[in-house]
Simulated assay, not measured.
Amino acid sequence: MSLQVEASLEARNFNIALDMAPGETLAVLGPNGAGKSTLLSVIAGLLKPDAGSATLNGRTLFDFSSTPDRWLAPHARGTALLAQDPLLFPHLNALENVAFGPRSTGVSKAESRSIARHWLAATDTELLADRRPGELSGGQAQRVAVARALAAGPDLLLLDEPMAALDIHAAPLMRRLLKHVLADRNAIIVTHDVLDALMLADSVIVMEDGQVSEAGATREVLNRPRSGFAAGLAGLNLLTGTARAEGVETRYGLITGTAEEQLPPGGPAAAAFRPAAVSVYLDPPHDGSPRNMLRAAITDLEPHGDAIRVRAGELAADITPAALADLGLVPGTEAYFVLKATAVTLYGT
C-alpha cells in the first residue's frame, strides 16, 4: 500500500484507519468538526496522535508501538499540505515561491528555478512569475500555491478545502487544474463539495465524530450512501431500517422499491430516492396506482432552486411554489409523501 494510517487522539475523539493504493486520490467528506483536518495534520506531522502508526511508500511516518517511539519530522515525510489560504511568502515573487521547495532540499538555484518554471507552466501561471502575492487574485495565488506544493516533489499531496476561499469563477478553473495534476498521483482532498469528489477522487471516506462512517469508490458511496451526510451530498433521501420480503421497514412504514441484490429478511437495509420524485398530498391519493405513502409532519420549508424543498424529519420533497400555495403547507402540517416504487433503490447497509 502507498499510505497506511492507524491513529487515535483521545482529546479530539479521533480514531481512524485507512489504506491508499499507489496513484489513488482520496476525498474526505464530513460535517464540520468531524476530524477531516485532524487527519491531514496527523499525516503531515503537524499533530501528534496518542497511538498508532503510519507508513508512506515504505517510509515510517510514526510508530508508537515501537520502543522508543518513532516520529518523522514534517519536512522529512514527503508530504505537502495545501490549505484554503495559499500562505505564499509575501516578499518573494511567484517564481521564487515555487522554487523554495526544491531549493530548501539542496537543489541548485538554477535547477530550482527550472523546476519552478515547469510547475508554473503546468498550473497556467507562468505569466505571473514576476508578481508578488499581493499582486495576485485569490485564484491566481491558489494556483501558484499548487505549483509550489508540486515543485517539492511530494509522495503525497494533502489538500484542505483548496476551493473553499475561491469565487464562483476561480473554483471551476482550480478544479480542472487539480484534475490534470492529480492524475496518477497520491493525494487526499478534504472537501464539502460533492463535485470535487466526483471529478477528482477515485475513492471517498465519510468522517463523522472522528470516525470513518463509510468508505468506498466515489460513485458507489454517492449512489448508495449509508450515512445521512453522504446522502445529503448526493441529493438523496436516505431511510434506513430492516429488510422485509416486500421492501424495507422504516420509521415511516414499509417502503417498496428496486433492490439491486437480494436482501436477507431481518438484516439492515436502506431506501434511497430523490426529493424530486416525491409528491406531497394532504390526503391519500385514490387513483389506484401502486405507490409508497409515508405520513409525516412537516418540519421545514426552504427555497431550493426553482422549487420549494419540503422537509419532514429525514424526508424531503421538491414541489413547485404553486403547489405549496395550493396545499397551504406550514411547519406542523401532517402530509403524505408519495412516490412510485420504481423511484426507490433498496440495498443492504
Rank of each mutant, 00 (worst) to 15 (best):
Q4F: 07
L9M: 14
E10R: 15
D19V: 13
A21W: 08
G33S: 02
A34W: 06
G35L: 10
T38G: 00
A44Y: 04
G45Y: 05
S53D: 11
T60P: 09
L61Q: 00
T67W: 03
W71D: 09
A73C: 04
A80L: 10
P90R: 11
L92H: 06
F100N: 02
F100T: 08
G101Y: 10
G101P: 13
S104T: 11
T105S: 14
A110L: 13
R117M: 11
L120N: 05
D124R: 15
D124H: 14
T125W: 00
L127D: 09
D130S: 13
R131C: 12
R132Y: 15
P133Q: 14
G134D: 11
G134C: 03
Q140V: 03
A145I: 09
A147R: 06
L150W: 13
L150I: 12
A152D: 15
G153K: 13
L157R: 12
M163R: 07
L166S: 05
A170Q: 04
R175I: 00
L178Q: 10
L178T: 03
K179C: 00
K179S: 00
A187H: 14
T191M: 00
L198H: 07
L200A: 11
A201W: 08
D209N: 12
V212W: 05
S213Q: 05
E214R: 00
R219Y: 14
E220A: 13
L222T: 00
P225D: 15
P225N: 12
A230S: 15
G232P: 00
L236V: 08
N237M: 03
L238M: 15
E246K: 00
E249L: 15
T250G: 04
G253R: 02
I255A: 08
E260G: 15
A271T: 10
A272W: 08
A272C: 14
A272S: 14
F273Q: 10
F273H: 07
L282D: 10
S289F: 09
S289C: 01
M293N: 11
P303W: 12
A307I: 03
R309M: 15
V310H: 03
G313M: 06
D318K: 11
D318R: 11
T320M: 12
L327W: 01
P331F: 05
A335N: 08
Y347E: 03
